[in-house]
Design a protein around this nucleic acid. Structure first.
Lengths: 254, 254
DNA sequence: ACAAAAGTGTTACACGTACACCCATGG
DNA sequence: CCATGGGTGTACGTGTAACACTTTTGT
């Protein structure tokens, strides 16, 4: 907000109204945060949905969301909503473009600010389906959603593809220790393709973000696959990227 | 909006209130769009600012903005605001992350959704400084701005750098006909560096987005520099990008 | 003829990609 | 001992970056 521009009759003023300063003559609207919660079960991308608890569309499947409260920012609101459903804090969250069609909520005008969240599905398992009728669905094979939530999911998926091609964020979906084959499967599912494992491991390891552990995961093979952990230091420092149009883009971005 | 989650006492319901359906018990807030308007004068990046016409902070410099109106989306609101100030329509606009600190506007809670705009500074010259006390300032050498507008400018600049490294959007800042040296200066200013002109021209021309004209620009040299125009067809088709983490990223993004 | 900017080509290196075989283990 | 998935190395081609000289023309 700021130096607003209006038709004459709309020129706002800061006025005292019942003791508080307000801008006059303007319409106030509800603002909601909706969370597109992604998980990965080792096999497929998952989406956490809930059954809406109030009218309209009660019982229909929907994204987890909430109206923004008087003393919280959108970011805080999204974290609150996410904690209420999953019990998790400090989750990776990224805001995507607001949805603001005037009639998108039939009850009352509501502007939605969606966030996509990447969570380690294992950390969640515990309180699944307790209070909020929440369920994981396969991404792309989930029930119909209310309002424009389907578009939000689609937009979130595109943004995730985009972002993950440039930044190492998919680790947020994996447990602390993971194997290279797991990581590769994750990338392959997101981009719906397959990669050469030799090239994949070379490229991933060349980032120096991964530290090999002594133990192996023997769940999926006789030989066992080495576990890796993220080097947190480097991870937080190296959120920059790899580009093309600019000679050495890493130098410039973020 | 959507499947919201609330404390018991906050559980919303859709109710009839003076004949209209409303969600009960929720707080409504003002929503503003603010435009970070970028231009390029051939030499430097410019920022279009106005002097705020109403209290508080009347007369202080600020971004052009406006409150969202009942029947318009954010996108439409941003285009409206932009047209009011510049007279331009169909401008390149991109939403950036919302600003929602509860106290960011001292008068009343307002959530701001900023858009950055790229305009051809020449198309604008005409109605400059008429109604709205607007002025172009050098980016990075402009007066102090109200509220959190400075942060918005900073964020917009970062996003522009990011986006322009991947997508050919800087053409939006140039007139219909422009020369390669002009284009190169544009990139050099944005990234605050210099590029090798041979490599730059090869890379730019290899996109096949530019069509060389017969005429030359003789303003800046004896020899003259060929004008180029954008191939609009290809431009609209080729908004995709160039990446690194994924083998052939262009295939996957957007 | 000279100054000032535009235009152009080649080479070296790094990176990305394709590709095939051996290893370790549990049953 | 064999089936299964894990792990590794090389050769080739493409693309990127570094680099210097010639062209044009107004004064």
């Amino acid at each position: 907000m700021g130096g607003k521009l209006f038709l004459e009759r709309e020129l706002p003023r800061a006025k005292h109204i019942s003791g508080m300063m307000k801008y006059s003559g303007q319409t106030r609207v509800l603002v909601a945060v909706d969370c597109i919660i992604f998980g990965f079960d080792g096999e497929n991308f998952k989406l956490l949905l809930i059954q809406r608890g109030f009218a309209p569309q009660k019982q229909k499947w929907s994204l987890m969301g909430g109206f923004i409260q008087p003393h919280e920012s959108l970011e805080v609101g999204a974290q609150r909503v996410l904690k209420q459903l999953t019990g998790l804090e400090g989750v990776y969250l990224e805001q995507i473009s607001a949805f603001s069609e005037p009639t998108r909520d039939p009850v009352e005008r509501t502007i939605a600010v969606p966030y996509f969240a990447l969570i380690d599905i294992q950390k969640y398992q515990a309180q699944l389906s307790s209070d909020y009728h929440a369920e994981w669905f396969m991404l792309g094979d989930h029930p119909q959603l209310i309002f424009d939530h389907e578009q939000m999911v689609e937009m979130a998926k595109m943004r995730l593809r985009y972002k993950a091609a440039l930044h190492p964020i998919l680790f947020e979906l994996l447990p602390e220790k993971f194997t290279l084959p797991q990581l590769q499967t994750l990338y392959e599912k997101l981009y719906d393709t397959t990669f050469d494992k030799r090239n994949f491991s070379r490229k991933v390891l060349s980032t120096n973000l991964l530290v090999r552990q002594k133990e192996k995961d023997k769940e999926n093979s006789r030989k066992g696959a080495f576990y890796f952990k993220l080097d947190k230091e480097k991870y937080y420092d190296n959120f920059q990227a790899f580009l093309k149009f600019i000679p050495n883009p890493e130098k410039f971005l973020l």
